[in-house]
Amino acid sequence: MSTPARRRLMRDLKVDPPDGVSASPLTDNVMIWNAIIIGPADTPFEDGTFRLSINFDEQYPNKPPQVKFLSTMFHPNVYASGELCLDILQNRWSPTFDVASILTSVQSLLNDPNISSPANVEAANLYKDHTSQYAKRVRETVEKSWADDLMDNEDDDEMEE
């Protein structure tokens, strides 16, 4: 069924995401998207393959979607659940945003956290005072993101047997 939200998402599909980001809706449901953000170069997140899910409802684009990391993250603004604390997804949402601009903001949040209201206090404290420790913890999540990729591929193999 075509609704304003779905029609808008079909238009979002035609907007290329930024470099290092890929996103696409599920084949049978345009209201749920999966995305991968590659960790930006020259940051502790470099080369990580971080997966996210984006859930839209019929109020989109007047209400923001729910954006959540599926990959394990170590970041001041990401809760243990994977949910993000990002102003444009909450009180600074605008109906002019689209999938590409949301993912651009999430990507830039990776290396530019907002320390004033941390979702992960430990990550915020390490980020402020123990940069090398922080980088080490982030690198662990980067390696985990690769391992998750491998596991997925193995799952695929098993499916074929």
Partner: peptide
């Protein structure tokens, strides 16, 4: 239109 992304010459997605 910045909200629905449809041209002003056409009707909006509502």
């Amino acid at each position: 239109c910045g909200i629905c992304r449809v041209s002003f010459d056409a009707t909006c997605s509502n």
